[in-house]
Design a protein around this nucleic acid. Structure first.
Lengths: 205, 186
DNA sequence: GCTTTAAAAAGTAACGT
DNA sequence: ACGTTACTTTTCAAAGC
């Protein structure tokens, strides 16, 4: 009987240590990404829900913690791409993506697809582009997405192309390489999205 | 006004069967030309047929999986070839082993572009998976028929998980009427 | 859960030229 | 800036780790 007691305490301690580890990891990654405290709190809530629903079985604590943070960033409207998230996590991108899809489905998070416009302020600020460029980029995204051009395309590549196009239109040109680097997409992707967007906008570039 | 059903094309059929006899895969690998067998990597022996094109996974238990065929007739033809090859190696193979189709992969075309964002909301976020950062297709699981559909911005789609060709037809019908009801087609 | 096999869809990426 | 190859998703069986 005493052994059972000790086992329970041991299990409880282990569980609390795991939770503490997960929360400290979320904190560490959130700091590295520079996201506000509110996002860490949302991530913590998602992680605790996943724990309560026993979704961590067969998965790593780090994977679920990272996915919770990825989901929290999106829910709070300041998304980080899987590429960016994986840079501060020791879990690889593919695993973060599949774990995110799993907890999102199981917890019924009902996540909406990421709006490319959500990336515009951060990417533009990293590129030191003006408010005018941001407004233009948002306009391009808004109009072309309405025409169905966004379907199936990655939000970061879409935003990157619109920012590149806007920088040209506002005479604040950034090269495809510069924009590609901050958005972490290839120049090929920017080129392809850019061509479609300016055509849909009826611009001559 | 092409009926999307008329654009359905079977791309792959997966089936399982068995010869009713245990096999020594090591010796089959030696005698069967073109056989790939690496038990450290995978317990099955891989044998590819050219006409029709398919790949057969042959196991120690005598069970066989055939995949890559473009129709159920091709599956039967491919497996007939595999059975005959084994008989040439003096291996006893049942008369007409039962062949069970396990999965049919189909492609189709709705004929117009799709706004996947609107469809995701329309079908209900809880009923779909759409993560364009990870994959360009929207994943839609149907209950009846029990299949999974991948919808793309081009209007093309993939239906998989069905066991009979009609499953894909029913699935396309349901998807079309669902999208029409939502006003998301055209 | 993983390993292998096949196939389509469309997007993205990483090679080489 | 091309072209090619290859990876992402879904489905399914098999036997073994």
């Amino acid at each position: 009987r005493l052994r059972k007691w000790q086992e329970r305490i041991r299990t409880k301690d282990a569980g609390e240590r795991n939770l503490q580890f997960a929360l400290s990891e979320i904190d560490r990654m959130a700091s590295a990404l520079g996201v506000p405290r509110s996002v860490r709190e949302v991530a913590s809530v998602i992680y605790r829900r996943a724990l309560k629903e026993d979704l961590i079985r067969g998965r790593s604590i780090e994977g679920v913690a990272t996915s919770a943070l990825y989901a929290a960033c999106r829910k709070e409207g300041i998304p980080r791409s899987l590429e960016e998230i994986s840079e501060v996590s020791r879990v690889e991108r593919k695993e973060i993506g599949r774990t995110y899809r799993y907890i999102s489905q199981e917890l019924g998070l009902e996540m909406r697809p990421v709006d490319p416009k959500k990336y515009v302020p951060r990417f533009c600020s990293e590129l030191e582009l003006s408010e005018e460029v941001q407004t233009k980029a948002n306009e391009i995204i808004e109009k072309t997405a309405e025409e169905g051009l966004l379907s199936g395309k990655s939000p970061t590549g879409y935003a990157a192309a619109a920012i590149y196009a806007a920088s040209l239109l506002c005479n604040e040109k950034k090269t495809q390489r510069e924009v590609a680097d901050v958005a972490q997409v290839t120049e090929v992707t920017i080129r392809n999205r850019y061509q479609e967007q300016i055509e849909a906008m009826g611009i001559h570039g | 006004m092409t009926d999307p059903k008329d654009t359905i094309n079977i791309e792959n059929v997966v089936a399982s069967t068995g010869i009713g006899q245990e096999l020594d895969l090591q010796s089959v690998a030696m005698d069967l030309e073109g056989a790939d067998y690496d038990p450290e990597q995978f317990p099955g022996l891989v044998y590819r047929t050219q006409n029709p094109k398919s790949a057969a996974l042959i196991f120690r238990s005598g069970k066989i999986v055939c995949t890559g065929a473009k129709s159920t007739d091709d599956v039967h033809e491919s497996l007939r070839i595999v059975f005959d090859k084994l008989r040439e190696l003096q291996i006893q193979v049942n008369e007409d082993p039962e062949i069970v189709v396990q999965n049919i992969v189909t492609s189709a075309d709705l004929g117009r572009n799709l706004n996947l964002n609107a469809i995701a909301i329309g079908l209900g976020l809880e009923n779909i998976e759409y993560e364009p950062e990870q994959f360009p297709g929207l994943v839609y699981r149907l209950d009846d028929p029990e299949v999974v559909a991948l919808l793309f911005g081009s209007g093309k789609l993939v239906i998989t998980g069905g066991k009979k060709p009609e499953d894909a037809e029913h699935a396309v019908d349901k998807i079309v009427s669902r999208l029409e009801d939502l006003g998301l087609l055209e």
